[in-house]
């Protein structure tokens, strides 16, 4: 459809100016694409490059001295393994819990004549505009025993009004008569929810689950705020710590140079650039490899939200 319009506009009278524009545009977009990819490819190259060689600098888009060693080091680190498990558990339970809350509210709000419906809508809308802020959350969550508790990854901000509206919009497309006939057959609301609504709305369920999963996987601020126990660190937080370590290393080298200490004594303590590159790749690769396939679910969400009215 789009293409037909395109061609009808373009073909036939391509002036010289138009041709020059197309060439320039193509080159510009290629450059843009290169810019989007370059930093990642650079990290990829470093992650496969021998750590000692990377220190010399100048690694661009291919490894100079190929090695698997960096990955070996990262994957054998018990901390990384532990964090990967925590990240995975957070993604699974966090996404499922979010979906459960949003789906149940969307389902209930489908019922137009529900007494107190407007109060319910208001109850879920207000937190979009007013929030206690970080400090208040910090104090209250600590009181609720969520500090250093895995549940702090799951419970806070698990309900999103925006996602709920999107689910509801989808559910409204399911014919009401289907539900009425199930009710006449004596099915309870919970049965209807799980046996009829859920199977019919798998596309939106998958979409919302994906959104939540990516958000959970990528977040690290919550670990920084509420987790002090190393066993509960996520992969992303470990990556942040590794990044912050570089500065520690630089400071140490600076101090060593100033005080005339030999460098060899400190180097071993902190992981080098190649190891961190490998860690970055491991932390991001589940998403980088899969996002080309699931991006359309995200795109449809963005357009759904904006063309809502």
């Amino acid at each position: 459809m789009m293409e037909k319009i395109k061609n009808s506009r373009g073909v036939g009278k391509r002036s010289l100016g138009r041709k020059i524009f197309i060439v320039c545009n193509t080159i510009f977009l290629l450059l843009c694409s290169f810019t989007f990819l370059a930093p990642y490819i650079n990290i990829l190259a470093k992650s496969f490059n021998a750590a000692g060689d990377t220190m010399l600098g100048g690694v661009t888009f291919y490894p100079r001295e190929f090695t698997w060693e960096n990955y070996d080091v990262v994957l054998k680190d018990p901390n990384i393994g532990q964090s990967a498990i925590i990240s995975l558990l957070r993604v699974i339970f966090g996404s499922l819990f979010s979906l459960f809350l949003q789906y149940s509210v969307a389902y209930v709000l489908l019922r137009k004549g529900l007494p107190g419906r407007s109060v319910i809508v208001m109850f879920f809308t207000i937190p979009m505009f007013i929030s206690g802020g970080l400090i208040a959350e910090y104090i209250i969550y600590a009181k609720l025993n969520l500090y250093n508790n895995f549940l702090v990854y799951i419970l806070p901000h698990s309900f999103s009004f925006y996602n709920m509206v999107i689910i509801r919009t989808y559910l409204m497309g399911i014919p009401e008569s289907l539900l009425e006939s199930a009710r006449l057959d004596g099915a309870g609301e919970i049965t209807i929810l799980f046996k009829i609504m859920l199977p019919l709305s798998m596309p939106i369920v998958a979409t919302i689950l994906l959104w939540c999963a990516v958000a959970h996987w990528n977040d690290w601020a919550r670990t920084l705020y509420f987790i002090d126990n190393e066993d509960l660190y996520t992969l992303q937080y470990r990556l942040l710590l590794a990044k912050k370590d570089v500065q520690e290393l630089e400071k140490m080298i600076q101090n060593a140079l100033e005080s005339g200490r030999p460098l060899g004594t400190i180097e071993g303590d902190v992981s080098g650039e190649s190891i961190q590159a490998a860690q970055t790749i491991i932390t991001t690769v589940p998403i980088v490899l899969t996002y080309p396939f699931f991006q359309r679910y995200f795109v449809s969400g963005v357009t759904m939200g904006s063309v809502k009215e």
């Binding site: 694409s33 961190q276 970055t280 932390t283 991001t284």
Partner: peptide
Amino acid sequence: ISYLPHFLSVAAVTMMVNQ
């Protein structure tokens, strides 16, 4: 390709900027 940075975590992005 232009969507790639959106899916990377901020931790990864800052690490990449650093390197």
